[in-house]
Design a protein around this nucleic acid. Structure first.
Lengths: 223, 223, 223, 223
DNA sequence: CATGAATGAGAATTCATTCAT
DNA sequence: GATGAATGAATTCTCATTCAT
């Protein structure tokens, strides 16, 4: 498996002085922080404003209401994330490699933007799954991309075609989701030795993909 | 693989006339229904009371507060569920069979008590993870049981010992969780032909376990 | 002109101890007082609650929102008022007498329930004229009743048929409305000698009707 | 009755390009439009600014606050209006003719500047009546002028002296006010045939004055 | 003069929880 | 046990007004 540059999420922290209406960004960043800390329902607009260092009335200059802040957090960054996924899916590598890339991308995202992923995993995961069609697509898009890889692999004879690709998708994504959730919730301690944890996350990704591809059973054991 | 009686969750609907303090049950059932419909935060005590057909002041005779209702929903049935899991884990079957039993138990639970599972998956998953240590154990207990099976299988040489059992647990449980979530959310249509869907759920469980054990890759393909 | 008992509005003050849900009445009465004092927009729910001597949350037990309080004030008493008007309109007296009865009824209403009339005149007059069809009817019903009397009088040959009855209605009602408004606003001092002002109000009513019927011009003067 | 040029309100639409501080006018015109549409309380400064096509901060260059805009709308045109009234009142015609001129002036004003009259009728009528003494005079001035005509007519023997002139004033003004209100509210359809409705308005004015002067009763009928 | 970002007091409304009956 | 009236803290959201640019 040809491990390639697997991480696409920008690691820059955007530390430029907030120009004109980076104020919107400022609020969004504050909201991400606050939501990650207290959850959507546990966060008050005033918390966000305080975190952003602004009057809370200003929040309403930029966002219609609390809900729209959440929506924006989502929309703002999901696009780029999805593009990265699409890029991987469209790549020429074997399906197995692409799946590893996807896993690594996802797990690494938390390392780079923990609060954002936290909100995504904890809050949006839930409300987004329910909300209007537009939102619901988020997960659907994810499924779609992974499904493409899997079906492609099945067609090419790289992956078993005797198993329902939808269920395979579910297994793969579910595994990744819980893995990252456990990391987010601090249930898994990450050894950040030297590289800020990158190696460790990659190791988790590798293991998840290994199980997904070769299974946990001892080879040769009876079905 | 010796498929055995896999389902333990009672399917009776408890239709006895609410005697003495079945009133407590009544409230709990109503709460499950309401939480499943509107989410914990979106549900008012009065909604629960109306659903139960009682005055909402009465809810406070049986429960200290809203939070305790959620906790009770959880505790009330989690115990039995966990016992069933423990029973499976302690069984004499090969680890592979026991994992299938676990998967079938879980997926079947939704068929039997969809609202309860919905609340568990959607609400408790989240609030319980945060709440006090006692709650957090719920998921932890689940992990513990599955982990026992896996470690046991590794020790017996039935499962690969070269992979981290914690990550393996995560993959297995994550896969099941998302599978059931997708069913809960109606993203997967269940063919309820004849048996109310039992066969179909079992089929999903089988596929999940098959992937978990043998992998999706074509056997013999390069690692 | 056979002057008859002209007043229909009950003068009792309902001083019984508030039974079960006279609480609703209590709130309504308080609201009338507060609206009359500060105007609808100038009144806060908490003002009403304080006036009623209750917690303001309770207001929301009985009324959906502020708007509904106003609506209720209106509906609650307009019905009886309109009935009284209908009764007069349906009477056997000459149109001229009935018009005097209407004028007296209206002007006397303020003497009996000044705050209610104040709210009606100042607030509802405005919002009611605009709001949904249902509300708008209030004035329309008034017009309808007076119009019936006038048209009836024209048909019987008691009133001039050469003038548009709609405009005649407008003149009559407009005159009464401003008369009562001026009283409400305290622009007219009422001599309450002996009878609490009843005689005086009646005198005003008589004058208004006299002008409406015979005109201010000196009889015999050229058109 | 020597019908004379009865209309004094300018009908020009002031379409010159807003020079220097016609900006103030611009705002006022926008405010009139907006207030007429949504009412004073229902209008936001930003609505006015948007209507005027300017930044809303600019409004505060020209007006101290929202209240002052209303006050200005009032003052701006009330003066000219009152002058016209005074001119009529001071005229040499019989009181009867002057009253017709007043009625025509008022009803025609709506034809020419419907929004302004709308605001006057709906908003100022109310807030002005309450506000400080200065404002209250508006209506008072109106009363004063009409009262002068009536008292003059009584003195000259043109109008009945046996009726209270204050009440007569009230009847006259009240009738006009409601007439115009009904037009404002669209409850009366105006036939704008040919002359933009001028003839029709004049007809309404004539009828109102006719009733006010000769009464609706059939002449010779018993009092 | 213009702009519109920023402020924050204020008000409506919700709803968990208590309590008298 | 049962009821639902009563309470009021908590929050969201609005919008007039100020102010830096």
């Amino acid at each position: 498996m040809h491990s390639t540059s697997v991480v696409t999420v920008s690691e820059s922290t955007d530390s430029r002085k907030p120009a004109r209406s980076d104020k919107r960004e400022l609020i969004l960043d504050a909201a991400i922080k606050v939501f990650a800390r207290s959850g959507y329902h546990g966060s008050r607009i005033s918390d966000i404003a305080r975190e952003a260092g602004i009057a809370y009335g200003l929040v309403y200059h930029y966002f219609k209401n609390k809900e729209e802040i959440l929506r924006s957090i989502f929309e703002q960054r999901w696009g780029g994330f999805l593009e990265a996924l699409e890029g991987i899916a469209a790549g020429p590598q074997p399906a197995q490699d692409r799946l590893l890339s996807v896993a690594a991308l996802i797990l690494n995202a938390y390392r780079v933007r923990p609060d954002w992923v936290k909100v995504l995993v904890i809050e949006i995961q839930r409300s987004a799954r329910f909300a209007e069609p537009g939102q619901l697509d988020a997960f659907g898009q994810f499924f779609s991309v992974v499904g493409r890889i899997i079906r492609d692999g099945q067609a090419r004879g790289e992956l078993r075609a005797d198993l329902d690709p939808a269920i395979a998708c579910t297994v793969f994504i579910g595994a990744l989701e819980l893995a990252i959730t456990r990391v987010v919730l601090g249930l898994v301690e990450i050894d950040e030795a030297g590289d800020g944890g990158r190696a460790h996350y990659l190791e988790v990704a590798r293991t998840v993909v290994e199980i997904f591809l070769r299974g946990l059973a001892v080879p040769g054991s009876p079905a």
